[in-house]
């Protein structure tokens, strides 16, 4: 099956084609777009190459069965959720812990951009962002500014600040999350 021929077709369109004629070839094209990412996600959680490969196969199998049974609208978020839940269940079986499983709605909400942004005018949004950045702790502020405004890569930021790459990633991710919370609060106050 040649993937390149279908590059111009979106995930949604491929799913529509599959739901129209139930031909598995559309699922093949769609799923193999995500093989590498799924392998990475399974590696992140399971930390073992063989387990990760087995898990990707099981995720594929589960996806094939479920896509035949019900309709999925956002394939990328859905397959990520299936893989993450599979790994969490596998870890639970190993460690005897009950994981908090994600559902499609949770993932969809996580994927949504800040909803209020669209309704706010640019100037108010800029004021809110400036105020929110000032509220971040020093490390997050430094990493967020270098990354988003000065367009430095993680490794450059690590060199400039002396933080490890992991710390840089974490300060940027947490900084972004805190910014979102602060902007929502500030815009509500306005």
């Amino acid at each position: 099956m040649k993937e390149d021929r279908y590059q111009h077709i979106t995930d949604k369109a491929l799913l529509e084609k599959f739901y129209a004629d139930k031909d598995n070839q559309w699922l093949g094209i769609l799923m193999q777009r995500y093989t590498m990412l799924l392998l990475g996600v399974c590696m992140k959680y399971l930390k073992n190459e063989d387990d990760a490969r087995d898990s990707v196969q099981q995720v594929f199998l589960k996806a094939i069965n479920e896509l035949h049974k019900y309709r999925v609208d956002y394939f990328k978020s859905w397959i990520y959720m299936v893989a993450k839940n599979h790994c969490l269940m596998k870890l639970r079986d190993k460690q005897g812990k009950t994981p908090v499983l994600l559902d499609e709605q949770t993932i969809a909400v996580q994927d949504e951009p800040l909803s209020q942004q669209a309704h706010l005018d640019k100037d108010r949004m800029l004021d809110a962002m400036s105020a929110a950045i000032a509220e971040l702790n020093e490390e997050q502020q430094q990493c967020v500014t270098l990354f988003y405004l000065e367009k430095k890569s993680y490794s450059q930021i690590a060199d400039i600040t002396g933080f490890s790459m992991m710390q840089v990633k974490s300060y940027i991710q947490n900084g972004k999350r805190n910014l979102k919370i602060a902007v929502e609060r500030i815009t509500k106050q306005q």
Binding site: M36, L37, L39, G40, V41, M43, K44, S77, D111
Partner: peptide
Amino acid sequence: DFMSDAVEGL
């Protein structure tokens, strides 16, 4: 998040 988790794993 999907891509970020994947890169961390890869």
